[in-house]
Design a protein around this nucleic acid. Structure first.
Lengths: 206, 206
DNA sequence: TCCTCATTCTTACGATGTAAGATTAAGCGT
DNA sequence: ACGCTTAATCTTACATCGTAAGAATGAGGA
């Protein structure tokens, strides 16, 4: 990763490059492995060099959640606002699941990037066109966003059913039975089930 | 916090006492302030002493999420399963919001305590009595749990509307308008709105 | 009384985030 | 071609972190 260079030779670092390398490192070895020195080494550079592209480690982590949501693209509300919301939710979930090790970060840092605001703006536009008042449209959008984050966060520390599969059927009979009966339901199916319910409910509540 | 004692005098520490002190410290000064030395000092004890009651810091953090959900009490499904689910969700949210600084922890650690399993078992019982098949009941329960976690996580890094209030109405007109129009909606109202929608949707999809 | 053993403290090590400042080379105006 | 400025990089240093290893202390049972 670190081709040796003559001392004083520059490496052409960028905030973007640093963030990308951080994502790769965190994807590969987890958040605990993401130290400034380690990241520097990955880029063939001393730790302190990174501070020219990122003010401190917290800002680096902020940048990671930025990277996490950057691939998001404004949802399409042409068909119906339900379909629009649904694809927004599915896309968001896919973006988060693409980097499971980064997911815990969104629990402590807001993701307000230009990218993200643009996505929200488009969604509001779609919801507005469908007749929802602005404040209500924002409520709906927050509901879905929080929902997706929650599903991903609670499901990505290993499928929760895994934690249940080993427990005593004597102590928790229904839990054990439900876990056994639902073993075929994978995370995707479970998510879709809940998402469809939420959207249906939002629909009914007009 | 640390009354001086003669050397060799014991302090009567317990895993419980350590965890409680950790919760207090994290509540007061945040997770970054929660170091083993700092926590020891808070208890009038050296850092290494804590390792007799907790195997390592990760286990301490696991214990914190345990403390977070410990006050939860099995929900009452007598009236209807919708009411039962609703009170489960409201209680869970309240438990999480009671210690906002600890909330990020649940994003990286599962909360499978006896307490929690008992709550889930009771909930499954209530849902089962209402006619839901076990696997479906578990889906419903996960849907609500994940939903609550998501709402709390995305809302507790400051009300998201706060992040929006400062942005340029020229760049994101709908976002700005919605934020302004919905300024009165507080977090509670927003949560209840989304929760009711979800439950209604789960009902319809039964 | 003596022994055992859980509790507590001491010391030590490697790793971390980052402040301060030295060093280098790239890009510019002349 | 030359020197100046300035951004990129490295060096050194420090306080703090988690925790391994083991010594010291006192309580309780034999």
């Amino acid at each position: 990763m670190a081709g040796r260079r003559a001392p004083g030779q520059r490496v052409g670092l960028t905030r973007e490059a640093v963030l990308r390398a951080a994502v790769v490192l965190a994807d590969r070895e987890g958040l605990k492995a993401l130290s400034m020195r380690r990241l520097g080494a990955e880029l063939g550079v001393e730790a302190m060099t990174l501070y020219h592209h990122v003010p401190n480690k917290d800002a680096l982590l902020d940048g990671l959640v930025e990277q996490l949501v950057t691939p998001l693209t404004p949802p399409d509300f042409k068909e119906s606002w339900q379909q629009g919301l649904r694809s927004y939710a599915v896309d968001l979930r896919a973006a988060l699941l693409a980097h499971p090790n980064l997911v815990p970060l969104i629990a402590s840092r807001p993701a307000v990037t230009g990218q993200n605001l643009q996505v929200m703006e488009t969604a509001l536009q779609g919801l507005g066109a469908a007749g929802l008042k602005p404040a209500r449209a924002l409520d709906v959008l927050y509901a879905v966003t929080g929902f997706v984050v929650g599903q991903v966060v609670t499901a990505s520390d290993g499928d929760p059913v895994d934690h249940l599969s080993g427990l005593d059927a004597g102590d928790y009979p229904l839990l054990a039975e439900a876990a056994a009966a639902g073993a075929d339901r994978d995370a995707d199916r479970r998510f879709t089930f809940a998402l469809d319910a939420l959207i249906k409910g939002l629909d009914a509540g007009r």
